[in-house]
Design a protein around this nucleic acid. Structure first.
Lengths: 337, 337
DNA sequence: TTGTAAGCGTTATCAC
DNA sequence: GTGATAACGCTTACAA
C-alpha cells in the first residue's frame, strides 16, 4: 500500500505515467478507453495523489495558516477561537484547503512563526488575528507580496486586505445605548493596550460620549488581560473612584463577566446601580447572572469573508470585495444592561 | 526574494549546492571555513529551506492532523477545543511540528478527511477526538500502520495508542459524591449515544450506584446533543417523571448548565432540591448561578501526552508510555452540588 | 572533505 | 492522443 504512485497505476493500466496524471487532472484530450482503464485501477487500488509531491510541483500546499497572537493559556478557555477556527475550516474545506493553526505569544516566536510558515512556503497564505497595531511583520508580508488577510484593523485602511468587526460602530452602539438608558458614568475596560481592538472600541466609546455631550473622563478607562481575574482587578480600580461608574463596557464577555462578578461581590445591584455590556455574545452570556448584554460579532461571516478573500488572493483572482471589509455587529440585550 | 534556494546560496558562497544542504543539516564533516561562508550568505539573504521540497524528499511533512468529529456549529462555542488545540500546538511546536485541524461531521466527510490527510500523506500522523465507539477508519489506520493517537477510548484497550480522561473513574467520583451528600435519584444526561465518552461515563455512573446499593433506573438516563437547548429538552424529560431526580450529572458543562437552567425555570432550588455536576471545569462553571460543580479533565496533560506519543510514533521511537494512558480527573466543588 | 548525480511523486512541455 | 522527459528544491549515496 505504501508504494502507490502514478507509475504503479500506469503499469497496471498499461499506459504511461503521464497519462495517469492527465486522467487525474481531468485533461480532456485523453481517449475514453484509456481514461476508463486508468480510473478502474485508481478506484480499485484506492490511489490518491501524494500531496507533498503536488505541493512541490505546483508550488501550492493548499494549506492556510492561522496565526493567533495569544499564549496557549490565554487561548485555552476562549470560545471565540473555537468559533473562528470552526468557521475557517468550514469555508476552507469547500475550496479544498486545510487549516494550519499556530500561536505566537512572544515577539521571538512571532518571528519564528512567520519564518516557519511563510518563508518555508509551508502555507499558501495567512490569516492573522489580533495583531499589534504596528506590526513589522505585516509590513514585510505586504512588501513581499505574500497572500494574507488580517482579521482586525490596520492603518492605512487600504494598505492590506482586512476583515473586521465594526468595532468602532459596535462600541459606539453600546455606549450610546447605555447613555440612552440613562447612564452617565460609563467605564471602558479594554484588553491589552497595544491591541487594535482595544483602541478601536475605545474610539467608538469616545465618539458616542462626545455625540451625546458627555465629557470624557480618562479615569473611567482601564485595561486588562483576557482573563476574569485581571478583569476583576480592573473593576476594583474602577470601583475605588467616587462616584463609581454606573455602567461598564468590557472588551469581551470574559472581561465583562469578570468585572460584573466583582461588582456583585461589592454588593452592587445589576443593572439598577451598574450596567454591563460585553462583546462576542459568547455562550457564557446566557449563563451569568444576570445574563450579560453583549455585542454579537458575527464570527461565521467574519471568518468566511477572511477565508474567501485569502483564497482568492492565493489563486491570483482579485477578491471581489474591498480591501477593508467591515462586518456589522448587533446588540443582544439581556438583563445586565 | 522568490528565487531563494540552496543553489543560489551555493553560487554566492562559491560552493556546491550539496554543501549548502550539509551545512544546514549540521553535517559535522564540513570544513569550518566553508561552513562560515555558507552561513554568512544564508544569514544575509535570510534563506530558509522550502518545506514542500523537504517534505517530498524526506517523506515527512512535520504536520500533525487533528480530526474533530463535530460540526462547525457544535464546535463553535466550545471552550474545550480552544484548550485542546492550544495545548497541542504548544507541545507540537517544541518538536518543530505544526498542527492541521479538520472537522469531520458526516460519515461522508469523515472518509474524505481521512483520505485527504492520510492517503495523501499531507500529515505525518493523526490525533483523533470523539470518535464513534466502533470506527472502521480506526481499524484501517491501524492496519495500515499509520501513526495516530486517539483521545478517548477504544476497545480492545491495547490495540491502539490512546489517551483518555479517566472517564469511568470521573463519573464514578461524581456519582459517589452525590450519593455521599444524600442524593438518591441521580440522573445522567449523556451526549450522543454512540460516543465512547457517553458510554464510559455511564459505566462509571452505574458502578457507583451499584457499589452504593442504589438500584439503576434506566429512566434516569437520557441523551442530548452538545447544546444548551438540547440539554434543556433532556431535562424537561427528566422532570416529567415522578419522583423527579434530585441530582443530575451532565456529560459536559454546557449540557449540565443547560439542564440546570431548565430546572431553575421550573422553580427548583439548587442545590437544595436538585444538584448538578458537569464535566470540563470550563470557564462557564464560574459564571452560572449557582456556580457549577464540575469534574476537571486535565486538558493540557491530555493533549500533551497525546502529542508526545504521536510524535514518538512518527519518528519511529517506541513511546515510553503504555498504549492506553489515563489522565486522572478531579472534582471541583462549587455551589451546584 | 567536497562535488556530482540520483531520486522523492507530481505536472507540464515537448516530440511523435 | 500519447509517451518520453525535464523540472519543482531538497537529501544523500557515491565518486573524486
Amino acid at each position: 500500500m505504501a508504494e502507490l504512485k502514478q507509475s504503479e497505476i500506469a503499469k497496471l493500466a498499461g499506459v504511461s505515467q503521464a497519462t495517469v496524471s492527465r486522467v487525474l487532472k481531468g485533461n480532456p484530450q485523453v481517449n475514453e478507453e484509456m481514461r476508463r482503464r486508468v480510473l478502474a485501477v485508481v478506484q480499485e487500488l484506492g490511489y490518491v495523489p501524494d500531496a507533498r509531491a503536488q505541493s512541490l510541483r505546483s508550488q501550492r500546499t493548499h494549506l492556510l495558516g492561522l496565526v493567533v497572537h495569544r499564549s496557549p493559556e490565554a487561548l485555552a478557555g476562549d470560545p471565540f477561537f473555537s468559533a473562528l477556527i470552526a468557521a475557517i475550516i468550514d469555508h476552507a474545506s469547500k475550496h479544498d484547503y486545510h487549516l494550519c493553526v499556530d500561536t505566537a505569544r512572544t515577539a521571538r516566536s512571532q518571528r519564528a512563526i512567520y519564518e516557519e510558515l511563510l518563508r518555508t512556503r509551508r502555507v499558501d497564505g495567512l490569516i492573522l488575528v489580533e495583531s499589534e497595531t504596528r506590526d513589522r511583520r505585516i509590513e514585510r508580508l505586504s512588501s513581499e507580496g505574500f497572500p494574507f488577510v488580517l482579521i482586525g484593523r490596520y492603518e492605512p485602511e487600504d494598505a492590506i486586505y482586512s476583515v473586521d468587526n465594526d468595532n468602532i460602530g459596535a462600541a459606539y452602539m453600546a455606549t450610546e445605548y447605555l447613555i440612552r438608558t440613562g447612564r452617565r458614568r460609563i467605564a471602558y475596560i479594554g484588553g491589552p493596550a497595544g491591541l487594535t481592538v482595544t483602541r478601536d472600541r475605545l474610539q467608538g466609546y469616545k465618539s458616542a460620549l462626545e455625540a451625546c455631550g458627555i465629557p470624557y473622563d480618562p479615569r473611567l478607562v482601564v485595561f486588562a488581560e483576557f482573563s476574569e481575574r485581571s478583569a476583576a482587578g480592573a473593576m476594583t480600580e474602577l470601583l475605588s473612584q467616587s462616584p463609581p461608574p454606573d455602567a461598564v463596557i468590557g472588551l469581551d464577555d470574559v472581561i465583562a463577566a469578570g468585572a460584573m462578578r466583582e461588582a456583585k461581590r461589592y454588593g452592587l445591584h445589576i443593572p439598577e446601580e451598574i450596567a454591563f455590556i460585553g462583546f462576542n455574545d459568547s455562550p457564557l452570556c446566557r449563563y451569568v447572572e444576570p445574563s450579560l448584554t453583549s455585542i454579537a460579532v458575527d464570527i461565521p461571516t467574519l471568518a468566511g469573508r477572511a477565508t474567501e478573500t485569502l483564497i482568492a488572493l492565493i489563486e491570483g483572482r482579485t477578491p471581489d470585495a474591498p480591501k477593508r471589509q467591515i462586518v456589522p455587529a448587533r446588540l443582544v440585550k439581556r438583563e445586565s444592561a
